[in-house]
Structure formats: C-alpha cells, structure tokens
Design a protein around this nucleic acid. Structure first.
Lengths: 250, 250
DNA sequence: GCGTGCGTCAAACGCGCGTATGACGCTAGT
DNA sequence: ACTAGCGTCATACGCGCGTTTGACGCACGC
C-alpha cells in the first residue's frame, strides 16, 4: 500500500473519468480527444494511458460504471413484476424500462447528468459505443423482448421486432435531446411535474406504437389517395426538369 | 465552351458526387474523408477543392441535389390536401410526409439508395449535417407543425412539440437502420408488400403517438407502483454497494 | 502558331489525433 | 542511507486529415 501516494493516484483516475464523462456527454465519442480530457482533468496527456492502458479501455470502464446498475435494476424490477404471478402488460414493461432510468437520473451517485449520458450512449453512432451497447444489452434485450411478446400475443414476432426498434429509437431520440431540461420544462408547461406523471406520459406516447393494430383499410385508402395525387403531380410538372444545374465556380 | 474537355470536367464532378454519396450513406459524415472520396472516384486528391472549393461545399451541393425535391414535393402535396377544403387529419399529414419519400426511394434519378441517404441525414450527429438540415427544413417544419396543430386541437402546442420530435426521431431511427432492406423483409414476412400497405403500417405506428391522450390515472397508477417497488429494492439491498471496483493494471 | 487558361496531377504543409518513451521526484521498505 | 518503483511529466513519433501549391498537358481563340 503506497498509503498517501495511492490516494493521489485514485484521485487522478477519478478526475480523468469525470472529465471524460462530461466531455462525452456533450460532444459524443467523436469529438472526444485525450488532449481535451487530460486538459480538463488537469493531468498530463500520458495519464490516461498510464492508468487505463488506452482511451477505449477508459471509456469502457466509465460506461460500465455508469450503466451497469441501470440494467441490473431493470432486470430485478422485471423479475419482481413477473414473480407476482400474472404476465405484466405492455405499459408495465415500458414502466420497468423507464422508472429505473428516471430514478438514477435523480441520484447524484449515478452521475451529474445520467439521463443525458444515457441519451448519448443510445444514439451515438460510433462503432465503439455501438459495440459496447450491443455487448452489454443483448441479454437484457432478450428478456424484455420475451416479456413484450407475452404481453402482445396478437403481434407477430417479426412485426414486434420492428416495433420495439421503433419505440426504443424514439425514446433514445428524446433522451438525446441536447437540452433535456428545456424539453421537460415544455412538457410541464411551466409548473413542475411529478416524475410519476412525466413517466406516465412517456409511456402513453410509446405504448400505442407497440399495441396498435396493423394498418386498417381506411389508412390504406388514405395513403393510396396521396400516392395518386403525388404521382399525378410528378407526371404533370416534373418532366420539365433535368437541368443539370452546373453552378458557379469557386 | 471547352467542348470536349468540358464534358470531361462534368464527368469528374459527377464521379466525385457519386463517390461522396455512396461513402456518406454507409459511413456518415465523420468517417468520410477526401482521400477516400477521390480514391473511389478515381481522381486526384485536389479535384474536390478544384471543383467545389472545399469538402463541405461539395457535401452541401450533394445534399441539396438529393433532398430539395423531397421537400418541394411534400409541400406541394400538403398544399393539394389543404386546397381540397377540409383540414387533413393526422394520418393524412403523416402520409404526406412519407409518400413522397417512398416514391423518391423508388426513383433511380433520386439516387441509388435514397431512403438510406435520408436516414443518414436525419440521424447523423455531426454539426455540419445538423446545420444543413435545420437550415433547409425550418420552413417546411413550420408548415407541418401548423397542419398537425390544426389536426390535433386537443393537444397543447407545447406537448405537440414533444410528440413531433418523438415521432420524427423514431421514423429517422427506422430509416437509418443499417440495412433497410432486411427490415422491410421482416415487415413483409417473406412475401412482397405493396408500398401502399407498408406506408399504411408505418402511419399506423406513428399516428397513435401523436393522437394519444395524456397519461391516464390507470397509467399513473402503474408507474407509481413500479416506483415504489424499485425504491424498496434500492433501500433494501443497494446500500451494501460502494465497492470502488479498482480494476487490474495494464 | 502561339499564348491563354482549364483540368489534372504529385507533392507538400500544418494540424490534431492516439500512443510511446525516458527522465524526474518522492514515498516507503530494507 | 539507499534503492525500488509508483505517478507524473515534457516530449516525440507516426498517421490521417483538409487544404495549398506549382508544374504539366492540351484544346482552343486569336
């Protein structure tokens, strides 16, 4: 035990992780450089490689530290619901996904901006983040997929895949909104909304997309009419197009 | 008119744009380098700067060439619907957004993979793409926002903003799926689906999220129960946490 | 037939990136 | 007292990026 020096080193580690988290939250994986991280942390450039080996390993540790508790809690909650006996309905399963996220969002131990971190992770396009997500979420995704399948027996499995993809994408899109707070302010129309009601509203938005019946004849009719209208227009006017539009020089 | 040489130059421009489009579609803005573009186009590295000034200008021209027709057609179609007299309902407006996209997706003139391009553009996180989108879409977004507001008088404007954000994010998430074709195959469960019905299904997914009532007491109750369940678990078991998990060296 | 200028080319510049290296204190075990 | 080794540091390496430069060929207008 390097008694006093050891604390110093741990402090440096913490500062590196904090700086990396903060920068990742509002710049994403691309746009996150070791020079910026170490500058914000007030350490030398080499500190990351010394303490973590390389950049990606540090990010991986950061993400695990932040996100693992979320999925553990989601699984525990789902277990608790199913242990109660009856199969949970669609809205309950969505609640199981959302409630732990919101609770960790309120918990300072989970990070200063947990929900924004979550949004970044869900929507970041870099292969590194994608891989990490897929690796850590595959088992939990399977569990929830099965739960949804039981709750929605009338939806074919293939269609269910699309719908979940769809619903989760929309959710991550909302979470990744650049300033979440402004959005919540909009939602609450000025006055504070209890988390409970806010979550209920989110569930109310996502749930119909999962439970909705397939396209009805009335809907098909509307689309068909629009298609004809649009094709008619293209034939009528668009064929005077094809100017190659070679524009100005530099 | 540099008669013969002029055609050569135009050909080079076209090859650059084609290569850039192809690379952008499956790599996004980051991960798109001039060296790759010019290599695929079979031209010299300096060609882009000669013909377009710089990389961003070329991308801008590419995006305008591909996307402007889409929004023009959407506006024309919306006009046509509203000129008919009655206010279009929510599903019709969604159709107005989707139908032209699907038609251009089938039109070889609009690019070899128009829908995938669209998905990339909607979901790419780089500031350049974001700015271009915002600049080109702001007017059309306003028009459609008003149309939705008229079609959904019971939804407060503030809530409507969230819901549209939500719905469009989900749609772009679906479009940006890495291979759209596989997804369509899933949706069609093996046999080909007419575009009309495919679009009707998409509308059926998105529409409920826009028209849904706010959270009902029943939904609030479910969430509340989950919150208590989750909190109970944290108090009971999570307080034996806080092992700092300092891991291995390098 | 000659110079003008367009389109192409190889080569280089400066920058920021992730990573590697070796020296320097300082603490702690012997 | 000495030395082993941990944590930090300045510095450098190699790479890929967007952009710039100047030379070369060649078709054209005079």
């Amino acid at each position: 035990m390097r008694t006093t020096g050891g604390n110093q080193a741990a402090e440096t580690r913490r500062r590196l992780l904090d700086a990396a988290e903060h920068l990742f939250i509002d710049r994403g994986y691309e746009g996150l450089s070791m020079r910026q991280i170490t500058a914000h942390a007030g350490t030398n450039l080499a500190a990351v490689n010394y303490h973590f080996g390389n950049k990606d390993t540090m990010l991986r540790e950061l993400l695990s530290q932040r996100l693992d508790r979320l999925n553990e809690e989601r699984l525990r909650l789902l277990d608790a619901c199913e242990a109660a006996g009856q199969v949970p309905d669609c809205e309950t399963i969505l609640g199981v996904l959302f409630v732990p996220a919101m609770q960790l969002g309120r918990d300072p131990d989970a990070g200063p901006a947990f929900l924004r971190l979550l949004g970044r992770v869900y929507s970041d396009a870099s292969p590194f983040i994608r891989d990490h997500l897929q690796q850590h979420y595959r088992p939990i995704f399977g569990r929830f997929f099965d739960a949804f399948a039981r709750a929605l027996p009338h939806v074919p499995r293939s269609e269910l895949g699309l719908r979940l993809h769809f619903a989760l994408k929309s959710l991550s899109g909302v979470l990744a909104t650049d300033d979440m707070d402004e959005l919540v302010a909009e939602l609450s129309m000025g006055q504070p909304i209890p988390d409970t009601e806010l979550l209920a509203r989110l569930v109310a938005l996502v749930s119909p997309a999962l439970t909705a019946p397939l396209g009805t004849p009335a809907q098909v009719g509307k689309i068909h009419r629009l298609q004809q209208l649009s094709q008619a227009r293209s034939i009528a006017s668009d064929r005077k197009h094809t100017p190659p539009a070679a524009p100005a020089e530099v």
